[in-house]
């Protein structure tokens, strides 16, 4: 069996030192359709869920962008420390791509795994002709959690998250996650580590694909 292959988007790669260290145990390839063709049945492969083929699952694992961030894993752990983890979640992504549907689908999948079944969800978007697309998702879970998930477009990616519950308030802003200041080209703090991808990835199977398809339809269809 060869080394596992991890498909990563170039802008999600953590700095070179980590890559060198990680490459001793995994092969890192760009997350593209072409690169995906190099996977054969002998490989254990980890890829963003959007690259998952519809006709084969063997040896394939998918990971979700949000779930593969260290900050989100720590946030999740803190929320799960609570006996009754319900609260108000405010989450916003600023992304480069105008079509944010896949990103939202992935985020929703991750949040459903944290809070359980949805009670209600609705998507409100600016008019399609708007020069600045903006999406507001209001959601409530059966466990009592309520959330606003918001998506917009800009040159620099950013994630903002706030969690308020009885026991704690968590605040995160990727813009504040910059230990280096002063250089012109400070790397984005929104990077993935291989170990987080490996530990959070999901085994690909028909059930997973069906669930993601359902979520896509839910989002595009509007109300649940």
């Amino acid at each position: 069996m060869s080394k596992p292959i991890v498909f990563m988007k170039s802008d999600r790669l953590v700095n070179a030192e980590h890559v060198t260290r990680d490459e001793t145990r995994v092969s890192i390839l760009p997350a593209t359709e072409d690169a995906l063709k190099k996977v054969n049945n002998n490989n254990d492969a980890y890829m963003p869920w959007t690259l998952l083929p519809t006709n084969r699952y063997e040896g394939l694992n998918v990971y979700f962008d949000l779930e593969a961030y260290a900050f989100f894993q720590r946030t999740k752990e803190l929320i799960q420390e609570e006996a009754d983890p319900k609260g108000v979640l405010r989450f916003r992504r600023t992304v480069k791509q105008h079509d944010q549907r896949d990103i939202f689908t992935g985020d929703l999948y991750v949040l459903l795994s944290l809070f359980g079944a949805l009670k209600r969800i609705d998507v409100k978007q600016t008019h399609s002709s708007s020069r600045v697309p903006y999406t507001i998702v209001i959601a409530s879970w059966k466990n009592g959690t309520m959330a606003h998930l918001e998506y917009t477009v800009a040159d620099d990616e950013r994630i903002e998250l706030e969690w308020s519950s009885t026991e704690r308030i968590i605040e995160f802003d990727s813009e504040h996650l910059r230990p280096v200041e002063g250089f012109d080209l400070v790397p984005s703090p929104l990077v993935h580590e291989i170990k987080t991808i490996l530990s959070t990835a999901h085994k690909a199977d028909a059930a997973l694909l069906t669930r993601l398809t359902e979520l896509n339809e839910l989002i595009h269809g509007g109300d649940q």
Partner: peptide, 12 residues
């Protein structure tokens, strides 16, 4: 057509 989100709470 402006859209808005608002969070009103006594959560602090």
């Amino acid at each position: 057509g402006i859209i808005a989100s608002h969070d009103a709470s006594w959560s602090r």
